[in-house]
Computed example of a mutant assay.
Amino acid sequence: MLSGRLAFLSVVVLAAVSVLARAATIRITIDKLAFSPAVVSTRVGDTVEWVNKDALAHTATARDGAFDVTLPPSKTVSSVLKKAGTLDYYCRFHPNMKATLTIAP
């Protein structure tokens, strides 16, 4: 019975390591009141690194409410993508700043 449990745990651990190994870090930069790149394709489990190079605070706010990241001036904030879909997002402080994030399963 113990060997069956160990085999099961081994499979679970290997699956978790496999998922972690595939995860990527995607960098989205805010500079001169613009997201760059403005269109990004990622996968669930990837990390988005939001880099604010401006001297102003910004947000990355999904129109559907999926995320709302506050970015202080000259700071970097990271978030892990947890749900698939195509999300349009913008800056609440500067609504003309718009971009799209497509997250595959």
Rank of each mutant, 00 (worst) to 15 (best):
F93Y: 05
K82T: 09
M97V: 07
G45L: 07
L2D: 04
P95R: 08
V77L: 02
I30Y: 06
I28P: 07
A104I: 04
V13D: 02
L2Y: 07
A24M: 04
R27G: 03
S18R: 01
S78E: 15
D64R: 01
W50F: 03
A99S: 08
A34E: 11
F67E: 00
G65T: 02
S10A: 14
G65Y: 03
P37Q: 06
S79D: 08
T100R: 14
W50D: 01
A99R: 10
M1A: 03
A15T: 14
S79E: 10
D64M: 01
R5P: 01
S74Y: 04
V48T: 05
Y90W: 14
T42N: 13
T25R: 08
A55E: 10
R5A: 08
L81I: 04
N52P: 09
R92Y: 01
L20D: 03
A84E: 10
S74V: 00
S18F: 08
L101V: 01
H94M: 13
F93M: 04
V48H: 06
R27H: 03
A57K: 11
F67L: 02
V12Y: 05
F93C: 08
Y90H: 03
T42D: 13
T76D: 06
V11E: 07
R27A: 11
I30N: 04
A57F: 07
F67M: 00
K83D: 13
G65D: 00
A38N: 10
L6F: 06
A23G: 10
A60K: 02
Y89L: 02
L101H: 14
T102P: 10
V11K: 15
M1K: 13
A84I: 11
A38V: 07
V11Q: 10
T29P: 09
L6V: 06
W50P: 05
D31T: 13
T25S: 10
L2V: 11
P105W: 07
L56N: 12
W50C: 09
P105D: 13
L14K: 05
Y89E: 04
A99T: 04
I26M: 15
K75C: 03
F8E: 08
M1T: 14
T47N: 02
D54L: 12
R22W: 06
V51N: 04
W50R: 01
M97I: 12
P72Q: 00
V11A: 09
A60H: 03
F8W: 07
V51R: 09
A16N: 03
I26W: 02
K75I: 05
F8T: 07
V51G: 02
V44I: 10
N52L: 00
T25N: 09
S36G: 09
D46N: 12
R5S: 14
A104C: 03
K82G: 11
I30R: 15
L9E: 13
I26S: 05
V80N: 06
S78T: 15
V13I: 10
D64F: 02
L9G: 07
S36R: 01
A66E: 00
Y90I: 05
Y89V: 02
L14Y: 06
T61P: 00
N52Y: 12
V17F: 14
F67G: 09
K83Y: 15
I103L: 03
A60Y: 03
C91D: 05
A15W: 13
T29Y: 09
R92H: 08
F8M: 14
T86R: 12
T86V: 15
G4F: 08
T102R: 11
